[in-house]
Amino acid sequence: MQPIQEAQQTVGNGMKTIQVRVNGKIAKKEVPIRMLLVDFIREELALTGTHVGCSVEGRCGACTIVLNGDAVKSCLMLAVQADGADIMTVEGLGTTDKLHPIQQGFWEKHGLQCGFCTPGMMMSVYNLLKTTRHPSIDEIRDALVGNLCRCTGYEHIIQAVQYAADQVAAMSKEERDEIFSY
């Protein structure tokens, strides 16, 4: 994808205009400087698949997104810092018609119960599988330290990641590049 331009416009009154590309769509909006990126995604862009599970500390990981190719916590960033960034949220991962292998893995292996941590969790899995072809169980567990889940005990999540990894490994390079384009 082509890099997008930063808006870099100061509006005054503690506001700023930013331009981001989220899930392939460009959005240009005026935001308060103090607005957290997660609130921008959820409330300004109405992408409510990204969740908030903690408040100050950014420990839970439910707000994880992929920003310029890396999984990051959108509650630990100001929206203005994302000016010019390319972002993927869970809504950009796959559709019900064409689930991403990660989503497929979570479905097949019952990797979710309440589903609240799942979008952020899958963003971290994306970060892992983008670069790691056959992750070991320990690598998977380590890759998920930043995403707390209270329902599953992680066992089925690990199976889901293994399932997804197998699917990805069986793909051609072109197919892989397509589903890991962020």
Binding site: R42, H51, L99, F106, W107, H110, L112
Partner: peptide
């Protein structure tokens, strides 16, 4: 039978609707 869940597709694409939404 270990049937995969019917609620999952909406949750997996970020379309779940929780109270904060």
């Amino acid at each position: 039978r270990s049937i995969r869940r019917r609620e999952d597709p909406r949750l997996l694409v970020g379309a779940g609707k929780y109270i904060a939404d």
